[in-house]
C-alpha cells in the first residue's frame, strides 16, 4: 500500500533491548495517522512491549492499534478487551503449537474492514458476492482444516498444561541460556541480560563467526538448532547494528515447552574463548 502511494509510514525505532518508547510513538503522530502497528514482543530480542499503554496513546490521537502477537500468543495472557486493542494478529505455529499456515486476526466489534480475499461464499452458495456476516465475510475459500485442527490441539495443550507451567519451563531455559552466554568474551548478546520482560528467544553473535556458522556449529556439535539471519525483521537488526553493517544479523535460539534439556547448551561456556584458537592465514 505504501509503494502504491495509498498510505504513508512513520517508522518508530527501539532501544538496544528492542523496547519501543511510548514517547517515541507520541512524537511520531501526524495529522493523518490512522493506525499504530506494533509487535507485542520482538522475535529477535524477545522484548515485550507495553501495548496497553500504546493503545491508550493511539486512541488519544484518534488512531486504531494493531498488535502483532505472532511471537507472544500462547506465552503471555492477552486481554484484547481490557487492553482496548482494536486488531490483534497472531500466528498459530509458534507458541500456540499449531502447524505452519494457520493464524488469526481479532477484529474489535464495530471495526469494518474490507476483506483481503473474496470467493467461495460458503454459507451462501447462491450469492455472487462475499457475504457480509461474520466470520464468513473474512473467511473466503476453503478453510485450512488441518491448520485449524492443529491450532485447536495446540490451545488445548496449553490449557491442559497451564501457561504458567509452560512459562516456568521456558524461563528456566532462558535463564540457563543467559547464564551460559552473558559476559563471555567474544559473545555479543542482543537484548536484556535477564529473563525479565522477555519471551524465551534471544539473539547473539560470536566474534569471528557468521550467525550461520554459529548455527551450523551449534547443531553439529551440540544438537541445538537455532535460527540464523535476519529473522524477517531487518528494521530491528538495523537498530541493533547487526544489519547492514553487521551483514549477517544474529543467531537466535528459542525455547518452548517441548525443548529438551539445555544442559548441552552449557557446554557452550567455552564458546567465548573460541577466537583464541582461531588461526587465519589471511591475517
Amino acid at each position: 500500500m505504501e509503494r502504491d502511494g495509498l498510505i504513508e509510514l512513520s517508522i518508530v525505532g527501539c532501544d538496544k533491548n528492542g523496547a519501543v518508547s511510548a514517547d517515541d510513538i507520541r512524537a511520531m503522530f501526524r495529522q493523518n495517522t490512522k493506525l499504530v502497528v506494533i509487535n507485542h514482543a520482538s522475535n529477535v530480542t524477545g522484548e515485550i512491549q507495553d501495548v496497553e499503554t500504546m493503545a491508550e496513546i493511539a486512541h488519544a490521537h484518534g488512531a486504531l492499534i494493531l498488535v502483532d502477537a505472532a511471537q507472544s500468543a500462547g506465552c503471555i495472557p492477552i486481554d484484547v478487551e481490557n487492553w482496548q486493542l482494536d486488531l490483534l494478529a497472531f500466528a498459530g505455529h509458534k507458541s500456540l503449537y499449531g502447524i505452519q499456515g494457520i493464524g488469526g486476526l481479532y477484529i474489535r466489534p464495530g471495526i469494518d474492514l474490507a476483506p483481503l480475499k473474496v470467493g467461495g461464499t460458503g454459507t451462501r452458495s447462491a450469492w455472487l458476492y462475499q457475504p457480509d456476516e461474520l466470520p464468513t465475510k473474512y473467511e473466503a475459500g476453503t478453510p485450512n482444516v488441518p491448520g485449524i485442527v492443529s491450532l485447536k490441539a495446540g490451545i488445548e495443550f496449553i490449557n491442559a498444561t497451564g501457561m504458567s507451567q509452560i512459562n516456568a519451563a521456558t524461563n528456566r531455559h532462558m535463564e540457563r541460556f543467559l547464564e551460559g552466554l552473558v559476559g563471555l568474551e567474544g559473545v555479543t548478546l542482543y537484548g536484556r541480560e535477564t529473563a525479565e520482560n522477555r519471551l524465551p528467544v534471544l539473539s547473539f553473535n560470536m566474534k569471528g563467526l557468521s550467525p550461520s556458522d554459529v548455527g551450523y556449529m551449534l547443531e553439529q556439535s551440540f544438537g541445538i538448532v537455532v535460527r540464523s539471519g535476519l529473522h524477517c525483521a531487518p528494521l530491528i537488526h538495523q537498530e541493533l547494528g547487526t544489519y547492514p553493517e553487521g551483514r549477517y544479523a544474529s543467531a537466535r535460539p528459542a525455547s518452548q515447552r517441548m525443548t529438551r534439556s539445555v544442559s548441552s547448551w552449557m557446554q557452550c561456556d567455552r564458546l567465548g574463548r573460541t577466537h583464541e584458537g582461531c588461526r587465519n592465514k589471511a591475517n
Binding site: G208, T274, C278, R279, K281
Partner: peptide
Amino acid sequence: KTQYFGSL
C-alpha cells in the same frame, strides 16, 4: 583462509 576453533 582457514579458521579453526580448537578450544571448542
